[in-house]
Design a protein around this nucleic acid. Structure first.
Length: 745
DNA sequence: GTCAAGTCGATTTTT
DNA sequence: TCGACTTGAC
């Protein structure tokens, strides 16, 4: 090394030292691994993102790779963005050539670059789930498929599943009438997508996979380019994504990339949408991972919380094995509250949040979690009445709003007139006198000629000759619509992106329409926000192509949530809480049937996934964790009787502080219980006797073989008297009272 | 084309 | 129970 390199070396060493400060030995080992494929088992709160980002910074800083050679894959846009921000903070260099993105984002990027090889048009559009569903419905109508026998959602599920298994319609196995019909729909869907130049989410992955597997030159190119591939949340990959990775990384080739996979099998909670935890084991074997690095030191939670979570997850079979620990103390015990009903549970949560807030904990540092969205209503109700500001996560996203979808449909039509879906969405919105009759006629004509709706509509209106683009007159009927779109297309050729949107909003009369609507103010605001979104898109990406903006809108439906950053209590499902942390966490509705959810009990490995979900929920808490349940709860308009979740009994007693045992003998509680039953069961069998014991619905009982349970139903009398009992361990059963030998618990 | 009544279904969800 | 969605009447 020459003298001139010395200052650089010194600078490099200083940079490295600061990069590595305060890392634990395992983190450091992971970050500085030699360039070979690795698996990092990163427990909750173990500094996973830090390891991932520091690894990238290290590779670049140490000269092992330049940004151009690195590919980092995440699951959400949020994670990708955060990674980029953190790397930028570590490295004061231009990261333009560093590819960071979601699987879908990266596949999309490749497809745009190689659209010809991928068999796509340059202006191909991306269908989000709602677009996809609409298209499927349309196709079912054309094929005259009974929507009762073939619910569009199931068809959608079928198609996406096939694609995620790498199967085109032609290769789907169909050995009965039902699956043959499914295949038929899938086939027609494939054709229609190609005709409209539309690509759904699963298609992005499958096309890209096929592109790489078919095109040796391209694959060679990317194998040579990416010497390092880093993957976040590896436990959430589906099988197609894993196959794509094997292809891209060039597994088995001499120039194979070093894959750095980070994941946690205990936090795999998305198998219901195709995630394949077994990918981790396959990966270990197929990529020849010599040593798995485990990050087990937790920087988030206090001891009791970790111990409880560890003990819980130990009940799962087939784990890769991992135990979180902390250098912090035991901290507070978990607080458990057993309520009689959902109202009492809510009252408890509300009171406790109030006092936490009074004691100085910011509301935004408190999370109220639940297993299913239906649970939020009663909680929201209680919070609202108590005047506690809260924010519910999930739900409608910016680009999913109907006014935004309408505006985007006009834009899509301008970018790609063959987009039948977009045309159908706006041809009569706002209404311009095109009824079902003329629409049907248009669709029939299009079907006959095999042309797109747009093409057909244009011919009907007399071709392009008629078109004096006069926007000053009202544009009615199909001919009017055609003139409108043509005029828009022409105007948009010269305008920059934000002005294009302004233009279409104005001339489509969307603004006028929502201006007249009763509660159109918010929609107008959102439409205005769409212009802002376009402005910042152009600003951030230096790209003002309409097609790119539309792709952005489909791929990043989120992040545009209003009202974020406010000081408010955080309400969300456990799934939505993954990756987040809070000072205090309330976990509500811990009942058999709800959490673990009854539907999951019958699924293969369903219970294990529920337990992982519970594990994820618990490890969100830094200092304080509340668990609560209610013995009876209103669900789907009926009162349901439940026992406490088995997960509570899997937590060691020494970690727990019971704030209130359910059904203790206090007179007050018995009173409140009675009143509830008499209220909700007027007209029903209220109770009956046998062996001078009276058994009531809601009674906690013990059975010699099945253990603890709750009576949830009863019928018959005398020696025929039977009770239905929901047992904690074995689910609900009907038992003859005479033989059941029940005791009150 | 709009509104009201009727039906149906109800874990979890990102891209 | 409640909401989304479809159907039928003007």
């Amino acid at each position: 090394m020459g003298i001139s390199a010395l200052p650089q070396l010194r600078r490099y060493q200083t940079a490295m030292t600061s990069l590595f400060s305060e890392l634990n030995p395992e983190q450091l080992a992971a970050i500085t691994l030699p360039p070979q494929s690795a698996l990092i088992l990163a427990g909750a709160g173990s500094g996973k993102t830090r390891v991932l980002t520091t690894r990238i910074a290290y590779l670049i800083q140490s000269g092992q790779a330049n940004p151009h050679q690195i590919l980092a894959v995440t699951f959400t846009n949020k994670a990708a963005k955060e990674m980029l921000v953190r790397i930028s903070a570590m490295l004061p260099i231009n990261l333009r050539n560093l590819w960071i993105g979601t699987f879908h984002g990266i596949c999309h990027r490749m497809l745009r670059m190689h659209y010809l090889d991928a068999g796509l048009l340059q202006n191909f559009q991306i269908l989000d789930s709602a677009d996809q569903l609409a298209l499927i419905k349309r196709i079912q109508k054309i094929l005259a498929v009974d929507e009762k026998r073939f619910p569009p959602r199931q068809v959608q599920w079928f198609i996406n599943n096939a694609k995620e298994s790498g199967l085109r319609a032609a290769f789907v196995i169909s050995d009965d009438a039902y699956s043959r019909r499914m295949q038929e729909i899938y086939h027609a869907y494939e054709q229609q997508c190609q005709k409209e130049s539309a690509v759904d989410f699963a298609e992005l992955l499958l096309r890209c996979y096929e592109l790489l597997s078919r095109n040796e030159i391209l694959r060679q190119h990317y194998c040579e380019r990416f010497s390092h591939v880093l993957i976040d949340e590896f436990q959430d990959t589906n099988s197609l994504q894993y196959r794509w990775l094997k292809l891209l990384a060039g597994i088995g080739r001499p120039d194979a990339a070093a894959v750095f996979a980070v994941g946690d099998d205990d936090q795999s909670i998305y198998s219901f949408r195709g995630a394949c935890v077994s990918n981790m084991v396959d990966y270990e074997r197929e990529f020849g991972i010599a040593k798995v690095i485990k990050l087990e030191q937790n920087y988030r939670s206090h001891g009791h919380i970790l111990e409880a979570a560890n003990e819980l997850i130990r009940n799962n079979p087939q784990r890769l094995g991992k135990n979180l620990w902390t250098s912090e103390g035991k901290g507070e015990p978990l607080r458990i509250y057993g309520a009689v009903n959902d109202h009492e549970e809510t009252a408890f949560v509300v009171e406790e949040i109030k006092s936490l807030h009074v004691s100085g904990i910011a509301l935004s540092e408190i999370a109220l979690l639940y297993r299913s969205n239906a649970q939020s209503r009663i909680l929201e109700h209680g919070l609202f009445n108590a005047g506690i500001p809260y924010r519910v996560y999930g739900g409608m996203r910016f680009f999913d709003r109907q006014e935004i979808k309408h505006a985007l449909a006009y834009l899509r039509l301008i970018a790609n007139p063959n987009d039948d879906s977009a045309l159908l969405r706006v041809i009569n919105f706002p209404t311009r006198g095109i009824g079902a009759r003329s629409l049907e006629q248009l669709q029939d004509d299009a079907k006959e000629s095999g042309a797109s709706l747009w093409h057909t509509a244009m011919q009907k209106s007399g071709g392009e000759t008629v078109l004096a683009h006069d926007l000053s007159k009202p544009l009615r009927g199909i001919a009017g619509f055609v003139r409108l779109i043509l005029a828009m297309q022409q105007a948009c050729q010269t305008l920059p992106l934000p002005q294009i949107i302004e233009h279409i909003l104005e001339h489509s009369e969307l603004l006028a329409f929502y201006g007249k609507e009763r509660d159109g103010a918010e929609r107008l605001e959102n439409l205005n926000e769409l212009i802002n979104a376009a402005t910042s898109f152009v600003h951030e990406t230096d790209d003002d192509s309409l097609t790119e903006f539309l792709a952005h809108a489909s791929l990043e439906a989120g992040e545009h949530q209003a009202g974020s950053g406010q000081e408010a209590l955080q309400l969300m499902t456990v799934h939505a809480a993954k990756g987040l942390e809070f000072h205090s966490v309330f976990l509500s509705g811990l009942e058999e049937g709800l959490f673990p959810h009854e539907n999951s009990i019958n699924e293969i490995n369903g219970l294990a996934e529920e337990r992982r979900l519970m594990y994820v929920a618990m490890t969100r808490a830094r200092r304080r964790l509340y668990l609560s349940f209610a013995h009876n709860r209103m669900l789907h308009g009926q009162i349901r009787y439940n026992v406490a979740s088995r997960f509570i009994s899997e937590i060691p007693q020494n970690c727990i502080k019971w704030l209130k045992q359910s059904f203790s003998n206090s007179a007050h509680e018995n009173e409140s219980r009675k009143s509830i039953f008499s209220q909700s069961f007027t007209g029903n069998q209220q109770g009956f006797s046998s062996n001078h014991d009276s058994w009531k619905i809601g009674q906690n009982v013990l059975h010699a073989k099945f253990g603890a349970g709750v009576i949830i139903n009863c019928e018959g009398s005398g020696s025929d008297a039977r009770v239905q009992i929901n047992f904690a361990q074995s689910g609900s059963k009907w038992l003859l009272l005479e033989y059941a030998k029940l005791t009150k618990a």
